[in-house]
Design a protein around this nucleic acid. Structure first.
Lengths: 146, 146
DNA sequence: CTTTGACCTGTGAGTTGGTCATAGGTTTTA
DNA sequence: TAAAACCTATGACCAACTCACAGGTCAAAG
């Protein structure tokens, strides 16, 4: 298969195939006549696997690691379970964070209904935002939230 | 105030101050003697405003737009309300998506408890992932989910 | 007076996972 | 035979910073 063929077969952009090849996830053979890359069924399996893994939140280095372990005839699955559980915890943390943000935004919108728009007066840019209370900000001195 | 002073006052990295300055969010005056930037109380207000806006999910171009409107003595608040409501909808969409992912991950982990690890056999890399069912994938031909 | 340390400057690179543009070579189709 | 569709490699671009580098400035301590 040539680049566009494998890309279509997996439903991705041809540039993604080239990118994954550069990253070492796919390993085509090169035709010396025309310098084209040639992908086989194994590459397609790897590509589909990589895409599924991406949907599950794995990073490209993690995926490459899994593929390399599989190449060595080791079962990558225990590792997959491990990374997967970490990823699940992260997803849950993100959900909690977003829900907190959502709650704060809704209460801010409610509070704003009663506030006039106002013209910037040199001390206040937009009181909607400046008077918005951020509970996640440290209430104490010299914070560096980054 | 010099860079580090305003950065400390707002609890951010000095490089962030320089970055925001390059981006036009802050407008210090330059001391011709030593070529240093000099920030005043207005810049500190703008910086704090920008950081609060970032926490609320505004992008830097949006923040710059709000600040420019405030400079022109127009009230940016109606615009803020507008962008804010869009942002809220987006946050809720993200929450829904992450919750769906979480559900699928948990059911996958449960299903995996009963599956053997297996050694890669040239057809399967890791059946944990390859046999994971993605309900968000289009069931039909030639998808391009990008 | 000099040195040390903390600060300042601008520029450029790195982060993540691709996507797009460009310029030039090849193959297929009309 | 010429145009369309493909291939190649390289590098820029997205967001919002962060960090590294090389060189200039300044305050206090020795």
């Amino acid at each position: 298969m040539k680049v566009k063929e494998i890309a279509d077969a997996a439903g991705v952009n041809p540039d993604t195939v080239r990118f994954y090849t550069r990253e070492g996830l796919l390993r085509p053979v090169r035709n010396p006549d025309n310098n084209y890359q040639h992908y086989d069924a194994e590459d397609l399996r790897r590509l589909r696997f990589a895409r599924k893994s991406r949907q599950l939140g794995f990073s490209l280095p993690e995926i490459r690691q899994i593929l390399e372990r599989a190449d060595d005839q080791h079962s990558p699955c225990p590792m997959v379970r491990d990374v997967f559980e970490h990823r699940l915890a992260e997803v849950e943390r993100e959900i909690t964070e977003l829900q907190g943000l959502r709650t704060r935004m809704i209460s801010a919108l409610t509070a704003w209904q009663d506030m006039p728009d106002g013209i910037p007066d040199g001390h206040t840019i937009c009181r909607l935002i400046e008077h918005w209370d951020d509970p996640s900000a440290a209430p104490c001195c010299g914070e560096q939230t980054s």
